Simulated scan of single mutants.
Amino acid sequence: MFLVLPPGMAIAFLAVHQCLFGLYLGCLFAPNHKGMPILTGNDRPDFLRRQVLTARNVRGSWFTDLALGGLNHQIEHHLFPSMPSPHLRRARPLVRRYCQDLGVDYLETGLIASYRQALASLHRAGAPLRRARIGSAPA
């Protein structure tokens, strides 16, 4: 970077690049887990239920797979972490059917709905802080 750009432009480029990359990663990871149940020490279901109940899949086309790096198949990714991303889509119907046979909830939603669920969960999580801030505000 510093070989082809003046130092100020190189630093600006790196700063913008890192900000955009961080935003992309946040958009990549948030839809899969935010708003899903958090298991505590007392909640210790078996491996399958732990992976399926704490994640959601994001429906979509090959473009969704490309944009989210295959992590839109989060349930299958957690069940089979070493499975190559292109095969996660093929495993999805098998896992979904198996979960249905066992009566395990398998959550799958669209991309926009997953962001809505994630943002709603973050809004609920921040509610106590907002209430405490309002209650302690000087009159």
Rank of each mutant, 00 (worst) to 15 (best):
L28G: 04
L20E: 04
A132V: 01
A55M: 10
G60T: 10
L107R: 15
P84F: 04
P138E: 11
G41D: 10
A120K: 09
A139I: 01
Y115W: 14
P7G: 13
R96M: 15
P6Q: 12
L14T: 06
S82W: 15
T109P: 10
E76Y: 05
V52M: 11
L111F: 15
H123E: 05
G22A: 11
P6W: 01
G60L: 08
H123L: 11
N57D: 15
P31Q: 09
L28P: 05
P45V: 04
P45L: 02
E76F: 02
G8K: 00
A137R: 14
R92H: 15
T54K: 12
A15C: 05
A30P: 02
A137H: 13
A120D: 13
L25K: 09
V58Y: 04
L88N: 07
S114G: 00
Q117P: 04
P138M: 03
L107Q: 14
H73M: 15
R131Q: 08
R92Q: 09
A118S: 13
P93V: 02
P31E: 15
L122C: 06
P81Y: 09
T54V: 08
A125E: 06
V104I: 15
C99H: 10
A113R: 03
A91R: 15
H78A: 14
S136M: 04
I38W: 08
R89K: 13
A67F: 12
P45F: 00
L28W: 15
L48A: 12
A127C: 00
L94I: 06
E76A: 05
T109R: 09
R90I: 10
A91W: 12
L119Q: 05
Q74H: 12
P37S: 01
M9S: 11
V52Y: 09
I38R: 00
G8T: 01
S114N: 07
R50Q: 13
L39P: 02
P86Q: 06
L53H: 04
S85L: 14
H17S: 06
Q18H: 10
M9E: 11
R130A: 05
A132G: 00
L5Y: 10
L5Q: 05
A120S: 14
F47Q: 13
P86E: 12
C27S: 01
A67P: 00
L119R: 06
P81T: 11
F80K: 07
R44M: 12
L68Q: 08
F47M: 07
L111K: 04
A127T: 01
F29L: 15
C27Y: 14
P81R: 13
H87E: 11
A30F: 11
Y24G: 08
A113C: 05
L28N: 10
R49P: 03
G126N: 02
R96I: 03
R97T: 11
Q100T: 01
G41Y: 07
G110T: 08
A139R: 06
R90N: 10
G69T: 15
G135I: 01
H73T: 04
L79F: 04
S82D: 07
R89M: 14
R133A: 07
R131F: 01
D101L: 06
P81Q: 13
M36P: 04
A12L: 10
F2Y: 12
F63Q: 08
N72K: 07
A91G: 07
T64S: 10
S61F: 05
N32V: 03
P93Y: 14
G69D: 11
I11Y: 03
L28C: 05
H33Q: 03
G8Q: 13
L20H: 02
Y106Q: 09
G22V: 02
Y115S: 09
C19K: 03
L122H: 05
L129N: 00
R133K: 05
